[in-house]
């Protein structure tokens, strides 16, 4: 009797259970903007296979919880990115992939937004132009670490999801 309980009952905190379930199925949006999107596709395809980490691309923002900003965000496109972010259900995370999404990169021009941080909160920056698929994988692992450390019930990390 004792053994049966020991084998089937597990004590943990609700926070760690929630964060485990959140980080194990990170579904990013199929949302490529520029060159980085090709490396994002490479990361999702056979050789690198992001599915191993529970990362499965979804075509709609309403089904996804990670947005990978993979490419240059222009002024014309920034409201669209913001709208897509707002359409995602909470909790949601943002990965800025590549130099353009991080800081505008070489494109310091009249048409380009100087970094995604200016209009959406970014959780993980993946540097590179474009970053290798391994770098994107590393970004996902970092994001999983971040989610692991967050406490869903304590409320601290939920503040950031409220739109400004």
């Amino acid at each position: 009797m004792n053994n049966a309980i020991r084998d089937s009952v597990l004590f943990t905190t609700a926070d760690s259970l929630i964060s485990w379930s959140r980080r194990s199925a990170l579904w990013p949006e199929t949302f490529g903007i520029a060159c980085c999107a090709i490396e994002m596709i490479s990361a999702g395809c056979a050789r690198y296979d992001l599915d191993r980490f529970g990362v499965v691309f979804r075509p709609s923002p309403r089904q996804s919880d990670v947005m990978i900003i993979a490419g240059t965000i222009t002024r014309k496109f920034a409201p669209v990115v913001r709208r897509l972010y707002d359409q995602m259900p909470e909790p949601r995370w943002v990965i800025a992939m590549g130099t353009c999404a991080i800081s505008g990169g070489v494109y310091n021009t009249y048409a380009v937004v100087q970094g995604a941080e200016t209009f959406v909160p970014v959780d993980v920056h993946v540097p590179g132009c474009p970053p290798r698929p391994e770098a994107l994988m590393h970004g996902f692992l970092l994001l999983q670490e971040k989610i692991k450390k967050s406490r869903a019930l304590a409320g601290a990390s939920l503040d950031r999801v409220a739109a400004p």
Binding site: I33, A34, G71, T72, T74, K76, F77, V80, V106, Y107, N108, T109, Y110, A111, V112
Partner: peptide, 11 residues
């Protein structure tokens, strides 16, 4: 189009 206009020519 123009959602990815980065100003390459001007740059």
């Amino acid at each position: 189009i123009g959602y990815l206009h980065r100003g390459t020519e001007k740059l």
